[in-house]
Design a protein around this nucleic acid. Structure first.
Lengths: 183, 183
DNA sequence: CATTAGTTTCAGAAATTTCTGAAACGCGCG
DNA sequence: CGCGCGTTTCAGAAATTTCTGAAACTAATG
């Protein structure tokens, strides 16, 4: 049974759910698991949140599709227990990976597809715009792939360096502009 | 009147809209403006997309709230014309800024708020989890703020460096671990 | 100041998403 | 097998979001 503060956190996650592309119940389930120091089974969740059993089942299925929860089993109990990873950075990685998969990759695929269909000599503004968008997405996802390969320690180190990185980038700037600038 | 390819792009943006947290019409309007080499007025959009005038009006309002379109005026015409920025990186910056504002900032605020309310001596797992989440969000938004200050040239330079940055981070790693590791 | 060209608001219709209870399903065990 | 315990599916109910046409509003113009 969550405390007052915990309840508020859970309700907040529920409300934010829609902005994050998940529904209220899924948000609440995630928050509950996130705060819990032990894995919970579906009935624990039903009790804590006061929603229907089937709703919890669907919510858990969705969280599994997002790779956001781990399925655990307890000795001599055949119920499924769920928990979130201890390591917060792992959660962030998963979140980014999944959102990229759902929100970026389909568009990149579509842009490439459309480019294939396009007659060689087409040369409209729209065509150029789409090509530029594709290039930008490729540049960003390429960068993402490389960062994703790094261990967490190095990633956090980079993060902490912050704008000190500017100095390093300083020399390179203007040498490889991605595209023409205004003037 | 958009070509076949352009239509497909527009429809794709419409479909993706829900995943991106905007609705179909807003997605389509944005795609249309993005591809157009000149600013369009509401009626141009109504004609191109075949949706109601009021729907377009609401969609444009929403895009303005997202700072994703610019309002233009033509000489001797009192209609409002809309366009998207030429510079794709500006678009990306806006997108990131707005999503942060809608999806991250409210949670950070809430976490701080809850922390204020928490009795000094509370020491549950949930409490620690929330504090850790707050710290992580602070670290990431801090990094974001610094990156956001850089001009596009330097940002792109960093992007292109990709995993070469690892070497730089190499020395720092393990010196400032954000948190204890597993073992 | 009435007209006209344009935009915005709004109440309800339409569509979509979420949630529920009931039924179906799966599986280990005696 | 058939019972008990647990999970999943599903059709429809409930809630929410999106879309529309009509009315209200705004401001330049003759």
């Amino acid at each position: 049974m969550p405390t007052q503060i915990q309840q508020e956190f859970i309700l907040h996650f529920g409300e934010m759910g829609s902005r994050w592309g998940i529904n209220r119940t899924v948000g609440q389930i995630y928050a509950l698991l996130f705060l819990s120091d032990r894995p919970l089974c579906a009935d624990d969740i039903v009790e804590a949140l006061g929603v229907s059993r089937s709703n919890v089942s669907m919510g858990l299925k969705e969280l599994q599709a997002w790779n956001l929860v781990r399925l655990r089993h307890q000795q001599g109990d055949r119920r499924d227990y769920f928990s979130t990873p201890e390591d917060m950075w792992e959660i962030v990685r998963t979140l980014i990976a999944e959102r990229k998969k759902r929100e970026i990759d389909p568009t990149l695929t579509k842009l490439r597809e459309l480019e294939m269909q396009t007659p060689e000599d087409t040369d409209s503004y729209a065509q150029a715009r789409m090509a530029e968008l594709r290039e930008l997405i490729e540049a960003m996802t390429g960068f993402y792939d490389e960062m994703n390969r790094l261990e967490t320690e190095r990633l956090v180190a980079l993060l902490k360096m912050g704008s000190k990185l500017t100095k390093i980038a300083g020399g390179a700037a203007k040498v490889l502009p991605l595209r023409k600038t205004k003037a």
